[in-house]
Each structure stands twice: as structure tokens, then as C-alpha cells.
Amino acid sequence: MQLFTCPFCGPRPETEFHFGGDADNDRPGAEASDASWTDYLFFRHNRKGPAREIWMHLSCREAFLMERDTVTHTVTATLALGGEA
């Protein structure tokens, strides 16, 4: 079981977290093409190595940015999105 550091609550076991998707998967505007919208919906990079992801800590309900390596499972950084923490 991995250990993630919530920017608000500190290190917690991974079961307390909810994966929110790739950090760069921005929602296209209302006039997006079919292709860019379906990419947003379905296409995932599934990156091997360094990844930037959104996670939510279910205990405090705060979403945050996590930089981690999907091969070594090293968590390099966790950052609050609104800059509060």
C-alpha cells in the first residue's frame, strides 16, 4: 500500500484517496470537436515514469496535484490546487 501526502493532512495510506485523472486532461469548451471531446472523455496517456495527476483526499475532500513516478512509485510532490496549503 502506497503512502501519499495530502497537502492538508500529511501522509496517509492510498486507500483514503480517489484518483481524479491526468492533470493535463483539461475539459474542452462547449464547441469542441467530436475528436477532442472524445479524447478528453476516453483517451488516457497511461504514462510510464513521471506523471502529473489529480487526486482527492476523501477524508478532507480536497483535490490536489500529485507528481509521482508510475514505475518506482516515488511521490515527488503533492501540491494544493488553490494554493491554500
Partner: peptide, 11 residues
């Protein structure tokens, strides 16, 4: 609750 919280923080 989770859905509302996610969109609130995202958008």
C-alpha cells in the same frame, strides 16, 4: 457529494 466537490474545485 464527491461529484459536486470535484467540479467545485475544478471549475
Amino acid at each position: 457529494g464527491l461529484l459536486l466537490e470535484e467540479w467545485r474545485q475544478d471549475k
